[in-house]
Design a protein around this nucleic acid. Sequence first.
DNA 1: TGGAATAATAAGGTGAGCCATAACATTTTA
DNA 2: TAAAATGTTATGGCTCACCTTATTATTCCA
Lengths: 222, 222
Amino acid sequence: MTTRQLSESTEMYLKAMAELDNGEAVSISRLAERLSVTPVSANEMVRRLGEQGLVLHTPYKGVNLTSSGRKVACNVVRRQRLWECFLYDHLKLEWAQLYELACSLEHATAPEVTDALAVFLGNPKTCPHGNPIPDENGSFPNVNSISLSEIPVGETVRVASIRATSTEALKHIQKLDLLPGREVTVLEAAPMDGPLMLRTAGKEIALGLLMAELIFVEPISN
Amino acid sequence: MTTRQLSESTEMYLKAMAELDNGEAVSISRLAERLSVTPVSANEMVRRLGEQGLVLHTPYKGVNLTSSGRKVACNVVRRQRLWECFLYDHLKLEWAQLYELACSLEHATAPEVTDALAVFLGNPKTCPHGNPIPDENGSFPNVNSISLSEIPVGETVRVASIRATSTEALKHIQKLDLLPGREVTVLEAAPMDGPLMLRTAGKEIALGLLMAELIFVEPISN
DNA sequence: TGGAATAATAAGGTGAGCCATAACATTTTA
DNA sequence: TAAAATGTTATGGCTCACCTTATTATTCCA
């Protein structure tokens, strides 16, 4: 298993798979959607990744990362989230822009730089969006937190992390003040996948279901 | 003059031209050599750059940056040298590796990041190799310093900056302790483009002419 | 169980940026 | 001034990662 240089595209596919992973195989169409690519293109690419031993494709079932693919994906995620920390904590850049800005940097980052950056930042455990940063060994943190969309009406939870990737979505979440640490009460779930009505910081807000699925929460512990 | 996204390759060509620029047009073969590409490929690429208005190619004479091409090149150089400062001053990475490591990052750096990085670093004036960092407006600093290869035997000068790009060359220069700030006396110039014999920090060292051309010096002022 | 939805594959095409080889043009220099 | 060196252009080919359109295979659900 040589660690030859992988293309940016390869890294993006592997990262997307890791981000979409929830235990089961990822369908090629969801992968295609996430990467803004046609299913046919995603199919081709998955075949290539399969030939390299990075993914396992079971026709009609979906794609899984192999252990070596997962390792690469972890590494990519690690690089990205470390950059997010740097861009936020030290360069004071926009919270909503971090994912996008760090995404370009992640593919251009040598291992020496990644390691030195982690040390410089004091080995942070999470990125500014609350998502865990994998360690050097490439263990992908399996966060078993629940999405806000699954919380029954009436319950109050705490925002743990945001998995949104588009700057637009992140801006909206920021505007609604649904940042990690905030407490949120689910007031109502409109029928037909309608928006959730929430209360946070004394305000009542409406949140689309798709967006709610990207917000991960935890029980209020203390 | 739209500032559409330029490819990494385009940026590398423009940067190489700026780095090779010494007032006259740059020949396509030197450009090709610098970029480790065949002259034919460089020719094709220069044609494309010409069509975009970034360079001016006079057949059999060479290539020049247009004002818009120069602006882009400056920006690339600025990004790279800012990253070099960060990698050296804060991440404590190897002096000789900086060029290479910063080179990958430079193409992945958004304008917001560049500007914030400059502020974070305190708007440094030079990179760790002693080369000037262009300002936001893209003025390419025209350093009129002299290369060590042009210093007559007997004279003593101070190393101002190193323009080498390969990690290997930089490692060698570091081993010889020819870093910016050091004083060097030219003891002898061997015939037939033979090596220069130098004295620096009490030691006598031999330096190949090609390498000496990458070391820029200034008179000892104080 | 049969049709709808979803997934896979086949075939052909695009552009960027590189390659090699060969032919031809110009400039340099001996 | 002629030959050598350098620069240019033509031709054809390659890989990667994408595209479209069309066909075929499988799965799911009513």
